[in-house]
Structures are given as structure tokens and as C-alpha cells.
């Protein structure tokens, strides 16, 4: 199976802060990958490099067989890479529904009218239907995160990048999120999910990598990786959260 996304020898530093050193990654088509790592490890920066909002110092990013290292974020989105931001970035003055219409119309290159029904349906699936006509700036943090996810899905991506979407959810909401993400996977979408809520990850991903000190220090089966002594050592918080 040809990979949908490959990172080759990606390096990035912010001044003295090294966030990536020669990172290699191949994501299979339809695969769901989880990323964990301590705060400031560079997880979000990696999403920036994949989506084009952060330029790597060195290395190559390929998506669906083409080199996208130099493409703008808008081009990458239209190729099929969607991202939910860790710090929600809603279009604050537009309604929740309009936020999705923008993503669907531009991210997926469709006519405005053609996307209305899909967007309305997505809002229902993401639990935002009753707030569809609310201005996005008036949403709570939790609803803003839901909006991030809904808006990313509205672009009908091939690759979905999720950055900490489960934080703050109560148990049954988290279960619904996991179910939703499984539904999305079932349609063939590849997923990379950065998450501190480990049990949600374990329930959803095929593979787990641990980012620390500019590289992946562990990778493989999620349940095995999470129990490895290395991970427990550098990532006590997660180890403690494990039952």
C-alpha cells in the first residue's frame, strides 16, 4: 500500500529550541496514527509542517505521491489535507454554519449552494446543529473545538489532522467523538491524531508514535508503545493516567 503521506528527514528549530531532527514518517493510506509527547515536544509544529503553515529547515513532505514541501497551505488543503487547530481558530464573526460553508466551498472547491446540505448534516453529526446560526465567536471553548473538527471534515479531506480534540470532554462525549472518528475512518480517510487523552487514542488508532527531543523515541502498536518503559519515563503524566 503506497503511503498517503511521507515525511523525509524533516528538521526544524526555533532558535535554540530543536523541535524536529531528521524525522521520517510514512502514513499508510487509510491508516490512523496517534502522536503523543510531552508539552513543547513539537507535535503541533509537525502539523504546521504538514499543512504548510510552518516551513521546515530541511526535509521533504510528500502527499499522495507528489512533493508538497513548497506548496501553500491553501493548495495543500485543496489537495485533501485538513487540520483542526489545537487553539481553535474559528471565523469569529461568521456563524457556525458559515464556518463550515467556507471550508466546504474553498477546501473542497465546490459551489456554495452545493455544500449547504452537507454542512448542515455535519453540524448535526458534530453536535452543533442547535448552534448553527450562532456567531462562532460566541461559542464556548468546547464548542469551538467541535467546530474545528466539523470544519476540517467539511473540506472532505483525504488526510485529517486532529490536534487535541478530546480534552475537556466528559466520558460519553468522548465515546461519541471516538465513534465519529471511527465513522470517518470507515470512509477511507487517513488520520493523524495528537492527543493527551490516551484512552481515546488507544481506542482509535492503528499505530502510536512518541515525539520527544526532536524525534520519535517509540513507535508501533499503541498498547505496547504506551507501556514501554521509555514512554513511562519521559511521559509520566500519561503513564499515570493508564489504568
Amino acid at each position: 500500500m503506497a503511503p498517503i503521506l511521507t515525511l523525509e528527514r524533516i528538521s526544524k528549530r526555533f532558535g535554540a529550541v530543536v523541535v524536529a531532527t531528521d524525522i521520517d514518517l510514512a502514513l499508510g493510506d487509510g491508516e490512523a496514527l496517534g502522536i503523543i509527547g510531552p508539552n513543547g515536544a513539537g507535535k503541533t509544529t509537525l502539523f504546521g509542517i504538514i499543512t504548510g503553515t510552518v516551513a521546515p529547515d530541511a526535509g521533504r513532505v510528500a502527499f499522495d505521491g507528489t512533493d508538497i514541501t513548497r506548496l501553500t497551505p491553501e493548495r495543500r488543503c485543496r489537495l485533501g489535507i485538513a487540520r483542526s487547530f489545537q487553539i481553535p481558530q474559528p471565523f469569529t464573526g461568521m456563524t457556525v454554519f458559515e464556518n463550515l460553508v467556507v471550508a466546504a466551498a474553498f477546501g473542497d472547491g465546490r459551489g456554495e449552494r452545493d455544500v449547504y446540505a452537507d454542512c448542515a448534516g455535519l453540524l448535526q453529526r458534530c453536535g452543533l446543529a442547535d448552534k448553527a446560526n450562532r456567531v462562532a465567536g460566541s461559542l464556548t471553548l468546547l464548542d469551538r473545538k467541535r467546530l474545528e473538527l466539523a470544519r476540517a471534515l467539511a473540506t472532505r479531506p483525504k488526510l485529517l489532522l486532529l490536534d487535541e480534540v478530546a480534552g475537556g470532554l466528559v466520558e460519553h462525549e468522548c465515546a461519541e467523538l471516538v465513534a465519529l472518528i471511527k465513522d470517518v475512518r470507515a470512509t477511507g480517510v487517513s488520520i493523524i491524531w495528537i492527543e493527551h487523552v490516551v484512552h481515546a487514542l488507544l481506542a482509535s488508532v492503528d499505530r502510536l508514535v512518541v515525539l520527544h527531543g526532536g524525534g520519535f523515541i517509540a513507535a508501533g502498536d499503541p498498547h505496547i508503545v504506551i507501556r514501554s518503559p521509555q514512554v513511562r519515563e519521559i511521559y509520566m503524566g500519561i503513564a499515570a493516567a493508564e489504568p
Binding site: A82, R83, F91, G93, V102, F106
Partner: peptide
């Protein structure tokens, strides 16, 4: 749509294909 999105959040506008 694009303009209003840009007004509100340029980063998100770019990341959503505008």
C-alpha cells in the same frame, strides 16, 4: 465568504483552502 473569513482569521482561511 472568502473575504469575511480572511477578515476573521487569515491563518484559518489559508488552512481551509482560500
Amino acid at each position: 465568504l472568502a473575504l469575511t473569513a480572511i477578515r476573521d482569521n487569515e491563518l484559518a482561511a489559508r488552512s481551509n483552502g482560500i
